[in-house]
Simulated scan of single mutants.
Amino acid sequence: MLAAIRQHCQAILSAVPANRMLALDVLRGLTITAMILVNNPGSWSYVYSPLLHAKWHGWTFTDLIFPFFIVIVGMSLQLSLQRQQTATKAALLKHALLRSVKLYLLGLFLVLFYYNFRDPSYNYIEQKLMAVRALGVLQRIALVYFFTMLIALYCATRGRIIAMLMLCALYLAGMWYLPYQDAYGQQFVGLLEFGNSFAAWLDHTVLGAQHVYYRTATPFAFDPEGLWSTLPAIASCVSGLLIAQWLQAQRTLVQKARGLLLCGVVAVWLAELWHFSLPINKSLWTPSFVLLSSGYCAIALAACLWLCDIKKYRLWSAPFVVFGANAILFFMFAGIAARLLGMIPVGDISLQSWLFSNLYQPAFGNYNGSLAFAISFLLLSYLLMHWCYKRGIFLKV
């Protein structure tokens, strides 16, 4: 059995070009794997706390996953620009705009791909189509990718650093100093509360309460991937540009890993200190959260660089290479499969609830059963992703 697994992993890694830095591929795979793991428990009633988002201020392991992906988008963008040096800026912007539109539409498809078959009174037009959530994970990536491309094309290193700082400063200026009021005329300013911040007011006013994630938040419904918090999310992506520039520089791998580790540790330390005056908050995507998540991403990349490219401990990374090579397809498949499990009725409950309550919960208990369901989901997903990987089937947008 072990020999077969070893052979399987070696076959995957043998297809990776010898001169390719494996660390980024592995980090992307680890990130998308973690995202799918935390998104698909057997039951949301039984989830270990590190696999849940922080309730508001503060952070958990789960809160780092999405910003990791945003930073990796920035790294990938910078590395791809190096391979497209002969392309004009107009051509690159056209491609970026087209890619962003595709990503947004894929995100919109996932939002609309649902029907409640267990409720005979369910009205898809009114309850889903007319109340569609405007933003989300892929939608945010779409917006962040396009604006980061603008910064990448028109700003050198110093300009990129200034752009990061200006985006965070503009965000904070709005959050701290722009007044807003509720439907009763009560005025607020400078709050960072659940449902009561400038970002929440903007989402409520522009998008509408029926088109955001937290629809029942008071006094303002808002979205964790909302409009104003997209500004510091772009800053997160720009940090990925800077990390990739460090990787592209003429330095040894050891120097690159040490630099990433040092910068990451300093960034995390500063973010934790900043937390006392500006809370780390994923839903608001505060600049302290930008600093924390980018710092941890740099540390994680340094670890992957040391393990995979310096020490050559690579066998463990093969499944993550498969997942990372087809991250968008993996995300789309997982989203569709999870929705199908929730839609297909088995008596009065969904297929997912039936599987959990009849198989996983009796065998493993509440919390372990919920985690075992998520791991099974990953293992079954791997079979499809590996089949696509072997046949060269990749979803490119």
Rank of each mutant, 00 (worst) to 15 (best):
Q10A: 09
A11F: 10
S14L: 12
R20T: 05
L24Y: 01
V26F: 04
K55M: 13
F69L: 12
I70T: 15
R83K: 15
Q84D: 15
T88N: 02
L92A: 12
R99N: 09
V101S: 06
L106E: 05
L110H: 04
V111P: 00
F117L: 09
Q127F: 11
L138N: 02
Q139W: 10
T148G: 06
I151D: 11
L170D: 08
A173Y: 05
G185V: 02
L192C: 01
S197N: 02
A200I: 04
L202F: 15
V206H: 01
A209L: 03
H211Y: 07
T218P: 06
S229Y: 08
I234L: 03
S236R: 06
V238D: 04
S239Y: 08
G240I: 07
W246A: 12
T252A: 05
T252Q: 01
C263H: 10
W269R: 03
L270I: 14
L270Q: 07
L273A: 11
W274Q: 11
N281V: 01
S283F: 08
L291W: 12
A298S: 06
A302I: 04
A303L: 13
G324P: 08
S350W: 04
N368D: 15
I375F: 09
L378V: 13
S381Q: 09
M385S: 13
V397D: 04
